[in-house]
Amino acid sequence: MKKLLISLFVFHFSLFTHAQDMTTLIAKVKAKLDLVTDYEAVGHMKTDVSFIKAPLGKVKVYFKKPNKFRLKKEGGISLLPKGGVSVNMSSIIATNEFVALAAGESVIGGTNTRIVKLLPTNENSEIVLTTLYIDEANLLVRKAITTTKENGTYEMEMNYGNFSKYGLPDKVIFSFNTKNYKLPKGITLEFDDSEKSLSDAQKLKNKKGRVEITYSNYIVNKGIADAIFVK
């Protein structure tokens, strides 16, 4: 019995120590991201969603601490997964209300990463679980999988370049599950032949949604007016 108690204590202590280590790593990543209070970025957005036919579009992205985010497309209309792209790295680890647990190691795009699971301690948090793949050497998040209460699971993969010192990616690939889309023909006034609509729909079906943003430039910490974020 005594041996069992000692074993349990050692096991619990080792887990605690590990969790502490991960909290330190997250704190370091957060400190790096905290260097940025706001940014404005220019990029190109590619939308690959099963039921959307959209061309490559030029976008402007705005971020301001703690979690203000806006993506504007040149020409006006942008389509993004609900609640998705605004879940950026700074927003995810903006608070300290989570428990960070180690979950192994992995290689992402040729880089060794530590897998860290973030469990929110706040019951009202929209995020249920976040898994981060952290490049420990450069303190960069290479991949994040976020499960939310309302908007499903999102996956973000980030490639870094010129702005890696701020923890800002050159490219973000955002993957998510799409729901089926169907509108009655009476609303769309589409009375053409159903064969065509079916073949088009079939071609577009059974694909996971993907939004890819490639940033060409960032303007960091130059101040952004709050009005930009008002829709």
């Binding site: 039921f51 959307i52 959209a54 006006g76 209309i77 889309y181 509108l183 009655p184 609303i187 729909a201």
Partner: peptide
Amino acid sequence: VGDMFLMKSSYVVLISQND
């Protein structure tokens, strides 16, 4: 004017303003 957002019965089409 702006991008044209069209809703078909099984998909949506987004056409760039200059197209």
